[in-house]
């Protein structure tokens, strides 16, 4: 009951955030984004043709009317048809979001779980050589550009001059075997980079917790070192970890992984978003921006409820 009440209150409190995000993004789209009028018209259009296409695109309406339309679209989840392809925006997203999720999720999960594992090891052996080794690896992962990692991994694993084990690009997935074939190299690249950032972050969180008094108490009562980490420390560290993990979810669901999708030629939502930005495909952009904002509000809610589950000192009232 407490959780339900809190959730409702939080969702209502999320409305100003939604309004703010959509308003600013829409302002940018309308006044600073590309204008599609002339892309859709042939050569030498007449004034009537221009007026007609602008009316079709909704450009002739006053800004506030268009913004109100946008809000109605977010509320009903009906964003109309893409200006570029004419496909229903909801269909477009329903087709591409699952692809992005399938592409990103393995890397996201492995990147976090392995990082947590490495961070626990590093924290346990802090300032000794396993720690130094793991941290050196992590700095390497952080320092090399994602782009370089993608290209290097493509060369190493996919090209004929490398191992040539996997396809370089594409997404022709009908079975688990094909899925693994296409997802492996992007996942390796994502994990490599994510490990760098995550390990470092998680290690500092764990080390901070290890220095607390209650850990000394646990040691004074003979808690074995491994148990100290997974029982006496891990749960205490979960708040910053949950925050980081949950807040990345909206980004990977909607924005996808633009770089990975572009470089591996995968038709995910990141690619769709990128194309919509460059061409000024407002229906698609409105949907992506609106949904991202909604997901962020939901993520905030989930994070708060999880805090409560993890730390009894957190109150939801």
């Amino acid at each position: 009951m407490e959780v339900l009440q809190y959730s409702l209150r939080r969702l209502v409190a999320g409305i100003p955030l939604l309004l703010g995000v959509t308003f600013i993004s829409f302002l940018l789209m309308v006044y600073f984004g590309p204008d599609q009028t002339y892309q859709l018209l042939g050569k030498n259009p007449t004034a009537e043709q221009i007026a007609e296409i602008r009316a079709e695109l909704g450009y002739d309406q006053p800004f506030l009317v268009r913004y109100a339309d946008y809000l109605r679209e977010v509320a009903t989840l009906d964003f109309g048809n893409s200006n570029s392809t004419g496909e229903l925006v909801t269909d477009l997203l329903a087709r591409t979001i699952p692809v992005s999720l399938m592409l990103i999720l393995p890397g996201f999960l492995l990147g976090n779980l392995l990082a947590l594992l490495l961070a626990l090891l590093a924290a346990h052996y802090r300032s000794r050589w396993p720690d130094k080794g793991i941290m050196a690896f992590s700095v390497v992962g952080m320092s090399i550009s994602y782009l370089i990692v993608i290209i290097a991994f493509q060369v190493i694993f996919s090209s004929s001059s490398g191992l040539g084990w996997f396809p370089v690009r594409g997404w022709n997935v009908h079975s688990l075997a094909e899925y693994l074939e296409y997802v492996t190299v992007p996942t390796l690249a994502t994990v490599f980079v994510a490990l760098g950032y995550n390990t470092r972050f998680y290690r500092s969180v764990i080390v901070e917790e290890l220095n607390r008094d209650h850990v000394r108490t646990a040691r004074a009562f003979g808690v074995p070192p491994a148990k100290l980490l997974y029982r006496n420390v891990l749960k205490n560290c979960l708040i910053p970890i949950i925050t980081r993990v949950v807040f990345t979810i909206p980004l990977i669901v909607i924005s996808g992984a633009l770089l990975v999708e572009t470089y591996f030629g995968i038709p995910g939502v990141g690619k769709v978003t990128f194309d919509a930005i460059t061409t000024g495909d407002q229906p698609v952009l409105k949907a992506v921006v609106g949904l991202t904002a909604v997901l962020f509000v939901l993520a905030q809610l989930v994070v708060d409820v999880l805090y409560r589950a993890v730390d009894p000192r957190v109150s939801l009232s």
């Binding site: 008094d213 209650h214 000394r216 004074a220 009562f221 003979g222 749960k235 993890v310 730390d311």
Partner: peptide, 30 residues
């Protein structure tokens, strides 16, 4: 030997216990 043959009581009761586990949980563990 720690906690069984010899035990320690610390200066800072406010922080000496783990905040995310119940008192019973921490006692029962030992």
């Amino acid at each position: 030997l720690r906690g069984r043959d010899m035990a320690m009581v610390f200066q800072e009761p406010m922080t000496a216990l783990n905040p995310v586990f119940t008192v019973g949980n921490q006692m029962m563990d030992i």
